[in-house]
Computed example of a mutant assay.
Amino acid sequence: MSAVLPDAIDRHSAAPMYDQLRQLIIDGIAREGLQPGDPLPGEHGLCERYGVSRTVVRQALAQLEHEGLVERVKGKGTFVSRPRTSESLVHTLVGLYDDVERRGGHVHSDVLRHERTVADEEIALALDIPVGAPVVVLERLRHVDEEPWSLSTTWMPDAVGSVTLGVDLSEASLYRLLADNDIIATHGVRSAEATVATHEQAQHLGVSAGSALLRLRSVSRTDDGTPIEYFVAYHRGDRSRFEFQLQQEQSQASLLHIDGRAGITLAGSKRVTP
């Protein structure tokens, strides 16, 4: 059953009615203790309850959807949104497992591939190793709270990756495993860019081919500059958002470049200035 949202629009307020309605819906979700996936009143019900036009209702819902607080499903209605990955992992050396865990979520990984292979030109360049050198590849389909979330492939130099072979990483953090073996990333470079899902990626992630994805590329290094991993990860666009920390000092800037593909490259855990 849909929730009943209390209170009323203040028609004498300087605040736009759609913004008031937006806040009333947020307050109602909190008051009712609604959970992700719970339905909200439909457009017609909100119009009647608050005595506003459908245009006002649609403006309020559009803003809430933009903020990632509600989801509108054509033909089904409006629902409390599932939380999005914060993507603080774009600008810090944190992995998806730790990013989600600290927000109270759960990550499970389907390990699609975990074996030794050899470095091609792209991998060799990223890891500062010769073409053909042995590497360990780890390909995982990551689930957040049982929902397909990202598809990632990580390549590690053999000396690093060998400590991961034989370890069950379906319920574990790769970074923690490496740290337990005294392999700790202290800095690196990550980039983020928009792309669309191929047919194969769409099947894994539970979206339609051509759906928006966020592609992350990352090289992490130890204190002495030795690369320990290179990964490429595809995150569902409807479950991801950018999150950057800002400082005033220009000297702290770590925004390196924005290329023609709208890719944003960020340096390690440094902060970004506007």
Rank of each mutant, 00 (worst) to 15 (best):
V100S: 02
E139A: 10
D98L: 05
G132H: 02
T117L: 04
E115L: 06
L127R: 07
D158N: 05
V144H: 07
R140L: 10
T153W: 05
L138Y: 13
D98V: 06
W155R: 08
G105K: 03
P130N: 12
T164F: 10
L141T: 11
T154R: 14
I123A: 02
A126Q: 11
V111E: 00
P130Q: 05
G132I: 01
H143N: 14
L112F: 10
V137L: 10
R116T: 12
I123R: 10
L141H: 15
G104S: 05
I129F: 11
L127T: 04
G161D: 04
R113P: 00
T117Y: 02
E121I: 11
D145M: 09
L125N: 10
D120W: 03
A159Y: 06
G161L: 14
D120R: 00
R116P: 03
R142C: 13
L141F: 11
D98P: 00
E122T: 08
R142Q: 15
G105A: 06
D128W: 00
G132P: 00
V131Q: 09
L112S: 04
A119P: 14
D158C: 06
R102K: 10
S109Q: 11
V107S: 03
A133R: 12
S152N: 14
A126M: 12
P130G: 09
D158L: 15
D128H: 07
E115F: 11
G105V: 03
G105Y: 07
I129N: 05
V107F: 05
A133W: 14
E146C: 05
D120C: 01
R116C: 08
H143V: 13
R113M: 04
D158S: 12
A119S: 12
E122K: 14
D158M: 13
V131K: 08
E139D: 14
V100W: 09
G161K: 13
L112W: 03
V107Y: 05
S162T: 10
D120V: 06
E147A: 09
L125F: 08
A159I: 05
L141M: 15
P134S: 00
V136Y: 11
A159V: 11
A126G: 02
D128Y: 01
T164S: 15
D120Y: 07
P157L: 13
I123F: 08
D99R: 09
H108W: 11
M156E: 07
V137D: 08
P148I: 03
P134T: 01
G166R: 08
E115P: 01
L112D: 05
L151A: 11
A124P: 10
E101W: 02
E122I: 09
D158P: 04
E101D: 01
P157S: 11
A119I: 00
